[in-house]
Simulated assay, not measured.
Amino acid sequence: MPSPADYAQFEEEYLEGLDPRKRAKALISQQLFDDIWLVLHAPGAQCVGSPQFRWWVRKMFILALPNDLDEETPTDPGSLVPAMVPLEAPDTSRQTLPVVAHDGKRLAVREQIYDVLCVAHARAEHGGRDKTMAEVKRRYTWVPKDLIALFVKYCPTCMAKRTPLRSPPPTPASNISLTSQASVLAPTTPQESPCPRSRT
């Protein structure tokens, strides 16, 4: 797996390559996640962010119990509603906390994406971008495909798989004289043949 320092470097390169207007929401930071949680947990609260931000949060995310998330199989293609139940109040009988979800999956926080990618890439057995992405998407959302591609591209194990093994260089013929090379390479004529001819 790429080191955390390597990951941080290409994550920053990924963000720098985005349009400046998209950078703020391309990866959900812990602070942004906390604001999303507050908007969803207290829908009437006007103290978090701008009205536009609160509208975006309510449009994109819901609070759901982990058991209600469709984490292992995709949602029913015939259904437009994700396989989850929005929460009005926490269900204390189950002793589980709701999670922030989008499209039936948990929201991945920027500070945890490296760990998510490491686990998903290991489960995919270093199978490449698409297999790693499929593993990530089984449980999480908001992990960009381009970031997954960079993670796989810089994975040392995957880099070793992609690099073809080189055959050893040919041994130099410096100890063979040019005349002996010529005699070895010259075709033999029937008169010079070392094998006796059979007469028939």
Rank of each mutant, 00 (worst) to 15 (best):
T157R: 09
I62T: 14
A134F: 12
Q112V: 05
E125S: 08
L38E: 07
R110M: 08
G44L: 10
D68H: 07
T73K: 13
M1F: 03
C155Y: 06
P74C: 04
C47R: 13
P190K: 13
F61R: 02
I148Q: 01
V143W: 03
S193L: 07
P169K: 13
A5L: 11
P190V: 12
H121I: 04
R123H: 09
V136T: 03
K161I: 06
L38P: 01
A5C: 02
T73F: 11
P82L: 07
G49V: 04
P172W: 03
K25I: 05
K105E: 01
L40I: 07
E71I: 13
P168I: 08
K59H: 08
Y7S: 02
D35W: 06
M1Q: 08
Q191P: 00
V100T: 02
Y7I: 03
D19R: 09
E71S: 10
S93R: 15
T92D: 11
K131P: 00
E13N: 09
T73D: 10
T200Q: 11
E11K: 06
Q181E: 11
W37Q: 12
P77S: 02
A182Y: 11
D70P: 00
L185H: 14
L97H: 08
N67A: 15
W142P: 00
A108V: 04
K145Q: 10
P43Q: 03
K161Y: 13
S50T: 15
D6K: 06
R199S: 11
G104E: 04
A173K: 10
T189H: 08
K161A: 09
I28A: 01
L80C: 04
